[in-house]
């Protein structure tokens, strides 16, 4: 059942488990919550449709409760209703709030565009890039491509070299200085193994975060953009789908891609991010060429000396 009617009516399988106290987990629960069966070997991701996001932060809480992440306790910020500021080592889901209401009271909008408008809310997450800067940069293989096509930091390998931190074009992965390891969203790698939909996608009440196979999500997202354009929401576009903003510079595609309603920079996302590891060979090559040149120079210099010591030099 690939096409997800919004929101999916209660699937027929839900009637197979009607007892109130269950003896064991519902097998392949993702079929009930996301309408798909999770199998290794396929590529899964999120399609975050911000036109449906109501900024309730259920995703932030579900992620923190599932992964037992401590609270950031920053205190009130000046960023509208966003008081957790940014993704970090202990905040793997973060909802951004951007108020866009006209300044003078006379013309503050009352006739709004359909779906989300005038108060942009978007649930930011690790992009699980197809070509991931952090994955390429990780020297220990702690970051690896799982059987579900997601990028995960293996906590039993990472030694906190922190080279993935500057390598990520979206500023997602970060070092937790109290436990000395890198942390980021794992797309609920352990839940996927058990056939469960990731906690944030399952918890999202308005189905703004949709979990599924990436190509299915891409077709659904493209249809959604067309529908929004037809409804007059001409500022809707995909960010992270192949060939769109966010999937540039060798990254090719973000498996967690977005439907945004304003410039990427408004959400602190780069328009044309770069995959840094694409230039390693070229850069190292020029470096080695320079070394070779200097080596040759050294050889030349040292040859002259042995044949003809400089005459008449006395000290």
């Amino acid at each position: 059942m690939t096409s997800a009617v919004y929101p999916p009516a209660v699937p027929m399988r839900a009637r197979d488990h009607t007892e109130s106290t269950l003896s064991r987990v519902i097998p392949d629960e993702s079929e009930l919550t996301a309408g798909i069966t999770i199998r290794p070997g396929r590529t899964y991701g999120f399609f975050t449709d911000t036109s449906l996001c109501i900024g309730c932060k259920a995703c932030e809480v579900a992620c923190k409760e599932w992964n037992a992440l401590p609270a950031q306790q920053i205190g009130l910020t000046a960023n509208s209703y966003d008081h957790t500021r940014e993704l970090s080592a202990i905040t793997w889901r973060h909802v951004t709030f951007i108020e866009q209401i006209e300044d003078n009271p006379g013309c503050r909008a009352n006739r709004l565009k359909p779906f989300q408008s005038h108060w942009l809310m978007m649930s930011d997450v690790c992009k699980h890039c197809k070509q991931a800067g952090c994955l390429d940069a990780c020297p220990t293989g702690a970051l690896f491509r799982t059987e579900f096509g997601t990028v995960v930091v293996q906590q039993d390998i990472c030694n906190g070299c922190a080279y993935c931190v500057p390598a990520c074009p979206f500023g997602v992965v970060e070092i937790n200085f109290s436990d000395g390891k890198a942390h980021k969203c794992t797309l609920c790698y352990d839940r996927l193994k058990g056939g469960f939909e990731p906690a944030c996608a399952k918890s999202c009440p308005t189905n703004s975060i949709q979990f599924g196979e990436v190509d299915v999500l891409l077709t659904r997202a493209a249809r959604r953009v067309e529908k929004l354009h037809a409804l007059g929401v001409d500022n809707a576009y995909l960010y992270g789908a192949p060939g769109t903003a966010g999937a540039t510079g060798g990254i090719q595609q973000l498996y967690c891609f977005f439907l945004l309603l304003d410039r990427p920079e408004v959400y602190n996302l780069p328009v044309a991010p770069q995959l840094p590891s694409g230039r390693v060979a070229k850069s190292l090559g020029t470096g080695l060429a320079a070394v070779a040149g200097l080596g040759a120079l050294a050889a030349v210099l040292m040859t002259q000396q042995s044949k003809a010591p400089r005459p008449g030099r006395k000290r």
Partner: peptide
Amino acid sequence: IHVEGDPRSPINQGTLCPKGAGTFG
């Protein structure tokens, strides 16, 4: 060990709001 939404319910179909998701806390 964990509390999350019940996928069989016609009301929330497994989804929860932040407070509901914080029930485990």
